[in-house]
C-alpha cells in the first residue's frame, strides 16, 4: 500500500471534503488502509482510544450495553473521535457487522501533529464535532422511542 493510495482514499472520503492539500498530506502520513473481517472487534469500552476509522465500505455496529447495537456506522462516516477531544478511552464497543474497508488514522501521532499545527487540529476537531453533534441529535430522537404504541 503506497502513501499515494492512502492519500487518494482520504481525498475521496466525505470526512476530508474541503481539507487543504497540506492537511491531506499530513493525514496520509499517519493513515493506512485496512480490511476488517466480519465479526472483528475494533475496540471495547474501557480500552485506550488511539485511532479513528473512516469507513469506505461495510458496516460497523456501536454497542453500549454488551451486545445491543445502538447505531451502525457506514460508508462515508467517521468512527471514533475520542482522542481528538482529549479523551483517551473508548466509551462503547465497536464490531464489524460485515467486512469493512476503512482508513485507520493513528490518533497518537495525529494528536501530536494537531498540537504543533492548530489549523489542522481545528479542521479535524470541527469535523469530529459535526459527527458528534449528529450522533447527539439522533440519540435524542432514539430516546423518544417514537414507534412505541401509545396506550399499548
Amino acid at each position: 500500500m503506497s502513501t499515494e493510495e492512502v492519500r487518494a482514499a482520504l481525498a475521496a472520503h466525505p470526512f476530508c471534503q474541503g481539507l487543504p492539500e497540506a492537511a491531506l498530506d499530513t493525514l496520509a502520513g499517519h493513515a493506512r488502509l485496512q480490511v476488517l473481517a466480519e465479526g472483528l472487534t475494533l475496540f471495547e469500552a474501557g480500552e485506550r482510544s488511539h485511532a479513528s476509522w473512516l469507513i469506505r465500505e461495510g458496516r460497523v455496529g456501536i454497542a453500549l450495553h454488551e451486545l445491543e447495537v445502538v447505531e451502525t456506522v457506514e460508508a462515508g462516516e467517521l468512527l471514533g473521535w475520542s482522542w481528538l477531544i482529549g479523551q483517551w478511552q473508548w466509551h462503547a464497543d465497536a464490531r464489524a457487522l460485515t467486512e469493512v474497508h476503512a482508513i485507520r488514522l493513528d490518533g497518537d501521532a495525529l494528536a501530536e501533529r494537531c498540537r504543533a499545527e492548530p489549523s489542522l487540529g481545528f479542521e479535524l476537531a470541527r469535523r469530529a464535532l459535526r459527527a458528534a453533534t449528529g450522533r447527539l441529535e439522533r440519540s435524542r430522537l432514539q430516546a423518544h422511542d417514537v414507534f412505541r404504541v401509545r396506550g399499548a
Partner: peptide
C-alpha cells in the same frame, strides 16, 4: 439483523 441500526433520518 445485519442491516442498519439507528434512526431513519440517518
Amino acid at each position: 439483523w445485519r442491516g442498519p441500526i439507528g434512526v431513519v433520518t440517518r
